[in-house]
Nucleic acid binder design. Structure first.
Lengths: 192, 192
DNA sequence: CTCGATTGTCTAGCAGTGCTAGAATCCGTT
DNA sequence: AACGGATTCTAGCACTGCTAGACAATCGAG
């Protein structure tokens, strides 16, 4: 049975390689440059191999998104747990979120902009996505204010951060005033 | 000289037809379905004709975006001018904005999601885009609060609306709770 | 150790994309 | 009526995501 196990291991390893390479390529040259041919060439296999791991390009984007969600949750938790007091925690969350989006634009796109074929806001939503939302909820829930559902508040705060992230990255907002915008957002939204 | 004038008129008319058809097709079947071939067939000309009006598909998206910006500004102004008091005006603006995004998803994408080759947040930003922002500023500026720059506040409020619009449309937020989210946003952000 | 069978992988190709060179056609002018 | 310039079309390029079928490597049985 050891032979099969080895093969499975190698297969899993190659799948990781595909996802990592796709992510790398996307961060370097944008998702448009992530074509099946280029990706296949980089992993030194032919195109059809990709389709033995994923149904298509969409699923590869989805895999990168899941990886990114886990990372993002980790970074957000690290930032909030290092801050003292609700106000500081919310601010730390906001900066960590926007920082992640700015440092990993392709991953952020995979998560929230592109179609990765993943179900969101449903029961069968993959665990990493649920957990990323949970990471936001943990900190934002405590500043929702009286009579405001934590989930609803978190959604709204998240949407605001998402708007700032995407409009900035798309050149619709100038990055210079990023900081005062965040401070304003935190001051107004968080009930501390 | 009348012949040339007629030709110019006909050319302008055809350009309008191209933009209107592209928009229609995009709203019906999404921007992915707006291919140069399909578009050419619908206007009953061959593909190269498109390129005698626009540099490429990107510029066609940009043209739809400009048209959409003007429309959006009009609708926002109509909604706010019909409301009494700052709080009601801000709420009306928010609903008008989100309503426009929901009713014209393809146009909204052309404006804020896709690359239409238009310069944003700069001096050479086209007038319709500047005016759309101005429409927001007119209402939001008066509730920015003491010591807060109206422009900065408007950008932040806009980003929040944009986040709600895109996350909802992308299936990341369920549309059921749209209303309480907006009310919460208005209550918290607007200093009335 | 050899031989089929089963995996696994690759080559080659399809239908579609945005875009363009050069041929063909139309139309106003002389 | 015929020319000449503007306009439009046909045909094609290089690319995309994806897949059928040929090929090669590996495995278990005799």
């Amino acid at each position: 049975m050891s032979v099969q196990e080895r093969k499975q291991r190698e297969r899993a390893e190659r799948e990781r390689l595909i996802v990592a390479t796709a992510r790398e390529l996307a961060e370097q040259q944008g998702w448009d440059a992530v074509t099946t041919r280029r990706l296949a060439e980089r992993i030194e296999y032919s195109q059809p191999v990709l389709y033995s791991h994923f149904r298509g390009k969409r699923e590869i984007i989805g895999a990168v998104a899941l990886q990114g969600a886990a990372e993002m949750a980790r970074e957000v938790r690290a930032a909030t747990s290092a801050a003292d007091g609700p106000r500081a925690r919310v601010a730390a969350l906001a900066y960590a979120y926007l920082d992640f989006a700015a440092r990993n634009p392709a991953v952020y796109d995979a998560l929230f902009q592109l179609d990765g074929g993943l179900p969101y806001a449903q029961e069968d939503t993959p665990e990493p996505l649920k957990d990323a939302f949970a990471a936001l909820l943990e900190t934002l829930g405590e500043v929702a204010g009286d009579g405001v559902a934590p989930g609803l508040f978190t959604e709204m705060f998240w949407a605001s951060l998402h708007g700032l992230a995407t409009l900035t990255r798309a050149g619709r907002l100038l990055p210079e005033d990023a900081k005062p915008r965040v401070e304003l957002l935190v001051d107004r939204l968080a009930m501390v």
